[in-house]
Design a protein around this nucleic acid. Structure first.
Lengths: 109, 109
DNA sequence: CTTATTCATCGTAATATTACAATAAACATT
DNA sequence: AATGTTTATTGTAATATTACGATGAATAAG
């Protein structure tokens, strides 16, 4: 137990859930917002901006990298992260498709 | 440790993360989709539709209820669940606001 | 009143997540 | 080469999540 039963759900459902999960932490939201704001790519500045340990930030960055939302390129001794526009758009349309399915009728109960 | 440091993030960030979390499981996605599809409210039919134990479904329903996305009304011995249109719209616009912040320029790295 | 039916809750096991100190790896600087 | 800087990784503790059987509470049916 304690293990999500992905087999019984559709690929779409699993993928959407995974997308949500990638953003289901305030630190990862904050990281994304920083990357959006500082049009140029930030790197370890994130550690100063957010108040978390370097190891923790690195861990969150890894998760965001794993789902493809961000990518990092090495620049000397530091790493420059930025948002992957393609994946961002995929997320955006996946979320929109999900939310558009429900049309507001009078609540039935 | 192991406890999210909500204090260091803004209310907006925490709320958005919580919304994502509510939908960060395929079973909860599937439940919502069922409720959208069967315009009338479903109840324990969910247990048959998805392949999870009754206790598990009940637990997921509770989480969705906690964030306000769905509401349930007792009908005799069964419970009728449906989406709360107001909260749905709040979610929708919160997600849209988030995704609209990033405008696709050429990826910088 | 007794017996089903339906759903919520409790208890519990397995697994995942979050956070950080400590360390390693890679490059830059002296 | 030796030292510093920056990031990733490893190990670990605390907490959260997921799933389900068992039980309880409420109403319906007999």
């Amino acid at each position: 137990m304690g293990l999500t039963k992905t087999e019984i759900f559709s690929d779409r459902q699993n993928r959407l859930a995974q997308m949500m999960k990638a953003l289901a932490h305030p630190a990862r939201i904050a990281i994304i917002q920083q990357l959006v704001k500082s049009q140029a790519c930030v790197c370890g500045d994130l550690v100063e901006e957010l108040g978390l340990a370097q190891a923790t930030i690195s861990q969150h960055l890894k998760e965001l990298k794993n789902v493809g939302l961000i990518k990092g390129t090495i620049e000397g001794t530091s790493v420059c992260y930025c948002i992957d526009g393609k994946v961002w758009n995929q997320y955006r349309s996946a979320f929109e498709s999900f939310f558009v399915t429900y049309v507001n009728k009078d609540d039935c109960c």
